[in-house]
Amino acid sequence: MKQRDPELLLQHAPFLRQGMTTPTAMGDVLIALTPATLAGLWYFGISAVLVIGASIAGAVLTEISFSGTERRGESLLDGSGLLTGLLLGLTLPPGLPMWMAFLGGVIALGLGKVIWGGLGNNLFNPALVGRAFLLATFPIAMTTWTTPDEAFWTFRATNFDIPFTYTEIDGLTAATPLGLMKFDQQATPLSNLFMGSTSGSLGETSGLLLILGGIYLYFRRDLDWRIPVSILLTVLVFSAILGLFDSERFPAPLFSVFSGGLLLGAIYMATDPVTSPTTPVGTWIFGIGIGLLIVLIRVFGGMPEGVMYAILLMNAATPLIDRFTQPRVFGHLRGDND
């Protein structure tokens, strides 16, 4: 996926035909995300439909309008725009106005993918580009978390804000588990984090369902297991080491893993084949880097959450990691390039 399609492919026999194509891989990820998406619906009701729908609409419409006529059908069919929109939607707070979610989808596809030359050429994960833009642009709307325990058909007024306006919510907001931890030193029970009955982004609240989706992807061979495993292990170990110094101040290792967008990011975003390293050693470096950055940002930074920036920063380092971890060509000496 990293390389441009060659004009003429010359290879030795034997040839293996692989069933995996871009559309099937994207389809698998969509299937794997279904349980977590449904959980978002369950906890946040109709708001989840509105926000995720708007972000998917933004992403897909942008993809269509920037594709040349001859490629239009193809880029739609591979489902990558749909997936970007869905992933972005899952990282958004339930009370976000639909127009902001739509704008996020447009930016994710436009600045995250199309401008780089389309699928396979982008340096950063498009969904996270969209989220980073939204977070920097509308910091209040993006950090106002409505509570999950309302009836399904509760229409959150802010979802329907007229484009380019926003009404600040007074009541019915709740800090995320990470926010509670950072600003009030108050831990959330692990069982709540596991099942998802906490406030937070639409798709990040239930650890259990995210892991189930990850296991499905692993068995479908759509996912490089080294990335999520190295991220999770690094976060566990690093948090445990910090805990040795001051267990009051620093969050517990398991809390760190199950809170915030860590599982969503580690399983579905960091593993994006376009923006992660290709070599096995490289993927370990990549995952460990993300894990370290997440803990550093969460514990010592100004913000409660750091998964997004950690992944984006390591995305930027990916070409470099790939370069330094190229395996030695058989018969060549180390440092011998050609």
Partner: peptide
């Protein structure tokens, strides 16, 4: 220009907004 209801795009008056806008104008 748009009254009090306008939700400002904070990023635009921060440094990244400068890079984004300049890049798009150059484009």
């Amino acid at each position: 220009l748009f009254g009090a209801a306008w939700e400002p795009w904070v990023i635009m008056i921060l440094p990244p907004g400068g890079f984004l806008t300049l890049g798009l104008i150059l484009l």
